[in-house]
Design a protein around this nucleic acid. Structure first.
Lengths: 212, 212, 212, 212
DNA sequence: TATGAATGAGTCTTCATTCAT
DNA sequence: GATGAATGAAGACTCATTCAT
């Protein structure tokens, strides 16, 4: 009944204000996502945190979930991009060090993503929409598993790795990283401390635990 | 509506009705936990399902979370007990088959527990209280990790396994099982199909992937 | 987060408080229905007017419409009962006076009901639910049309009325009453003034307007 | 977003653009009125449908209601114009056929208008403003009642109708048509089927129902 | 001690209206 | 004058918690 003037975008010269506000909402949602679980975020909080009114959200998104999915996708995309940077290629450097790099990168990605993923699992609607979107864009699990599988296959072809079942090995590496990620998130152990265990894992993976 | 004995416990002769009612609430909450996410359970539903009134809850528990934590603990304890049953002892049977058993048991435990754990992560308050409780009682992670570590150490001492870093190996086995659990819960893959991958994982763990 | 004690039913000794509150809500809704259109009634207003909290409504009714339908049915049932009281039987008194009584009763019923009926027509959901309910109970249109048709048929059989098409005559009598009802509701004309026109209508109906 | 001419009126050379835009808004609102209830029309929908911006409305109308009243008036005026076309004059054709034509025309007018009128009754503010306007302009009920009254008076003067009370007869004809209109709108009966009852009504009106 | 009706803050969402551009 | 993004009050509905009985 008593609309006031816009607050948030004033003074942001240079940007298209409409785009800016949409961005701002996604930014804010993404930031809140880093602070708490998806299920604990209210539309009002997003609006307050973004410094805009309660209703704006619906000028840019169909509903709460739409905004949240956008934020989740951006967050996930960002993490994936970071992950992919600096992944070693087959035949370069040393295999052991490369595998350690891979495992560390996976650990980091998972530790950074886990809270969001688990939060997502409590919100079936959100999970479903997110999955639909993530499979539409070329950013699904293959961006995590694909590079690792390619690397392993490459080194095997080059003879720098022996003969091994691909899926099992991928599962072991990612699983170990996931385990470290859980320890970090649930157990509250510091990442540095956990990362120190990675070389041992790779060594064990390389050498096996069978006797002599 | 004069005060009267709770309906649900009437006729349960011999039990202390107060204890019985408490139990019943936990039972019911635990059952509901198996059906849906923690966040989707209301106090009224618990009361209705338990056949008692909305208010009793507060005679035995400080609040909703208190009851839920009790139910979560009992559920977790039950899963752990199932897990511990039939774990092979060092020196018995074949090492490979034993490790497969261990991995399968861990996979089962994790797949059964994961939905609850993730549901928990959406409820920070609940998660915190749960962690406090789980570390107080002798039922923390060591009940999962302990037996596996003991088994591995035992076989190593017996010479049925080589020399290997314990923590790393434990992380790899549990991590792989966790990975399978996630695939089951998030990806909707059937357990049977996933379980088929376990022998490959154990073989890889035993033999390693290094060339030659 | 801060429930207080009940206010509205305190001191109403003798009634079953649960039934009392349900009744009270229907009472209140019915009263508001007399003051304004269905579409302009909010759940909060009902609660405020009933002196209870916002949420109670949902302890007794599935949703807003459920309560409103209950109120509409009660109101309509009451009006119908009043209408049926004192309707003359065929063969008693004078035909002309009897028809005037019928027309006046129909006029009253329609004038009292019209605002609600029209309000209903703007709320498709509500209209549908109301129609379902009204056809379930023996209170549909036949309670309005039936008695009049029976009366006309009776008098015709007794020879106190000539030969005439039943449906057309019913339509004319009820239609005329409806017209008066509209004039009252929409035009704001006083009922007494309108009622004065009824005898003329009946005389015209009896005598016809053909020449000679 | 510098001020510029409204999109929708560009290219309409020759018209005063301001008038054109006002017209267009009324046109659009009128069209929407034919599709749904008054209460279900939003200002944004009108703007979108008219191809103009949300705000223009307030350059030509005090508020939403003002526009809606204008649209309602135009719609009603249109229906009335249609109604008045082809009404038989006293002394032409046959009286019975003429009265049937009148009754059918009234029935059509009412059936076409009723949804809007009832929708109006759910919006007290709108209803009030509409009534004020309709009485100001020479388009009130007399445009409906007037021609019929004139026709009846004319035929009576010509001796083609007997002596009868004018108001009562008008009420009966319009009331019957209104009754048919209601049956069509509320009961969902097809217009054709209802129209078949009109001759019976006219015959009854002419002959009366008194015996002998 | 058990009951369960009542509470009311809080959730998401809609939409008439304003006003900087 | 035209634009349309921003506003925020209001709507229906949920549910953990209290307390008179």
């Amino acid at each position: 009944m008593s609309p006031r003037r816009a607050r948030a975008t004033r003074g942001r010269a240079g940007d298209d204000p409409a785009v800016a506000l949409r961005q701002q909402l996604v930014d804010t949602a993404e930031r809140l996502l880093a602070e708490r679980q998806v299920g604990a975020i209210t539309t009002r909080e997003i609006a307050r945190a973004a410094g805009v009114s309660d209703g704006v959200l619906y000028n840019y998104f169909a509903d709460k979930y739409d905004l949240l999915v956008a934020a989740l996708l951006r967050r996930y995309a960002g993490e994936l991009a970071t992950f992919e940077r600096d992944l070693p290629a087959p035949g370069t450097g040393e295999v052991r060090a490369n595998l350690v790099s891979y495992a560390e990168a996976v650990h980091k990605l998972i530790a950074d993503t886990l809270p969001v993923v688990t939060g997502l699992m409590s919100e079936p609607t959100l999970l479903h929409r997110f999955m639909v979107e993530i499979h539409r864009e070329p950013m699904g699990h293959h961006r995590l598993i694909g590079p690792l599988a390619d690397y392993l296959t490459g080194e095997r072809r080059l003879g720098r790795l022996g003969d091994f079942p691909l899926d099992a090995t991928v599962t072991m590496i990612i699983g170990s990283a996931m385990m470290l990620g859980f320890a970090e998130v649930v157990g509250g152990v510091a990442r540095g401390e956990l990362a120190r265990g990675v070389p041992d894992i790779i060594d064990t993976l390389l050498a096996g635990i069978a006797p002599g």
